[in-house]
Structures are given as structure tokens and as C-alpha cells.
Amino acid sequence: MKESEKDQSRRKFIRNLGALGLGSLAFSSIIGGSCSPKKSELASGKTVKLLTNNNELVEVDSAYISTLNKNLSSNHNSESRKGLPGKKFVLVVDLAKCQNARKCMDKCQSVHQLRPDQHHLNVLVMKESENTAPYYMPKQCQHCDNPPCVKVCPVDATFKRSDGIVLIDNERCIGCRFCIAACPYSARSFNWYEPIDAEKYKDVPYDIEKNVPQKKGTVTKCTFSADCLREGKLPYCVSACPNGVYYFGNIYEDSVTNGTSGETVSFRKLVEENGGYRLMDDLGTAPSVYYLPPKNRAAVPKEENSHV
């Protein structure tokens, strides 16, 4: 009895192994060469829409894609809740360099399929008091280590990973918007409308690290471009900046890399030498975003005043 059970489980294991092997075979056929005749024989005629890394929508025959979906997509998302090992990401924003080019904002909105009035990243004109000069301040989610938004989420939809990133799972979110109320940085946005191009992205599997495709009735937020980080690339906004405002890196490694010049420096020294600070640190949120003071405010037109 026991013997046969063992046998059965072994057979099962072998069968699974076989499936795995077949799976990886199909997988490699996608990764490999472009259009060998063998593949067109396999084609099922059904196509599936996929979003590429370059944010382009492509249609692929479902025969090539099914295994990939099964083995990566769901697994990928549960993996996404853990965070990258050995990393704790940090962003340094050099306010002295920001000239309001807004390339970061544009890139962010297009990558995350946001409407023009939705901001994961917002460049603000700040003016502390009457006699101080205004300056530009790019503001994204601060990825706090004591995140008020995560505290209040009733369903674990928004969560903090070990690498410091605060993400939102828009397949979990119930749309109560408590996190928006709780965030002192106004960093979150809600899908009040049907997201743009909802029809186009309808069949695209959800990527939690990019939070696309967006879903109506859920909250969306800056992801620190976790999808890029997984590939070892800098976040979208960081590499879109033409003015060298952003430094991004791993605080454990004490290094940050400028998204514009590619220059890599010690995080500690950069913050120490330039008097870096965190936004509203007195609230106890412990942000992962540091700001270097806006030393040079001459670039800001004086009429661009904000209400403070």
C-alpha cells in the first residue's frame, strides 16, 4: 500500500517534471529566434495582447504564450510582494537642478497609463513664505518606512516590501480611498473614470510592479518603477530627467546613480555634503526620498506662486 503510494507520487513527480520540461521548451521558443517555420505550425489562430518592456502593445499567438502566462504572471505577482533581496531603494532629488522640464511627469503618466489629471509624480512650485523665493519640487510617493497609507489599508492591497517599495495591488483594492486620506504627501491617485485605453489593455495580464493596466475604482500610486528595478534599470522618471535632478540607488550599498549623467556617488556623502533632508520628516513617516536643498531658485519665474 505504502509502496504503491510512493510509486504513484514518484510517477506524479515525473509527470510534473515532464510538464515543466515542455513548459520551458515552449518558453524558450518564444525567447529564441523570431519566426521559424516550426512555430507557425503550432499557431492556434487565437491571439493574445501583451505589453512589452517598451510599453508597446503587441499581439502574440496564444499557442506561444499560455505557458509563459501560467509560469510567470501569477507567480511573478506573489514574488512581487516580497521585494528584491539585499536592496533598499532610495531616491535623492536635487532641487537646485530642477527646471520644471516635466519629462519625468510625462514619462510616468505614459508608462503607467494615467489620465492627464492623475499624478504619481507631480512637480510642484513651492514657496514657504512671502519673502522666500519659489522653487520647483518634484514629488512622488516617498515610500515611507512607517507608511501611514499601508497602516490603514483594510485588505492588504497596499503593502511595503523588504526593499522599501510601497506598492498597490489593484486586483485586491476595494476602492475605500482611506490610503489617499491618510497620505500626507498627496501621492496617491484614484481611478475615478474608466482608465484610458481600458479597451486596448483589456486582455493584458496585470503587472503589480508597474500597476498596469489600471482598473476603474482602484487606487494607483508611484511604484518606484519596480519593474525596471527588477531588471537592474533605473526608474522611468529618473532616466527621463534631462537636468540631472534625480539620483537613485541602493541605500544598503550606499550608492546612488544620477539618471541623467549616469554618475554614481556615495549616497551618504551626497546627502551630507549638500544638506539633504526628507519631506515633512517630523510626521514620523520616515521617507525613502531625500531632497537636496533648492539652492538656486533663480530659474523659477517669480509670478509662479503657489498657495502654501
Partner: peptide, 11 residues
């Protein structure tokens, strides 16, 4: 001279 970092080379 550089040291390799996560996102670039540190001089």
C-alpha cells in the same frame, strides 16, 4: 577607476 554599483559605476 570605478567600483561597480547596482545602477552604475562609482568613480
Amino acid at each position: 577607476f570605478y567600483v561597480k554599483r547596482d545602477f552604475g559605476m562609482m568613480r
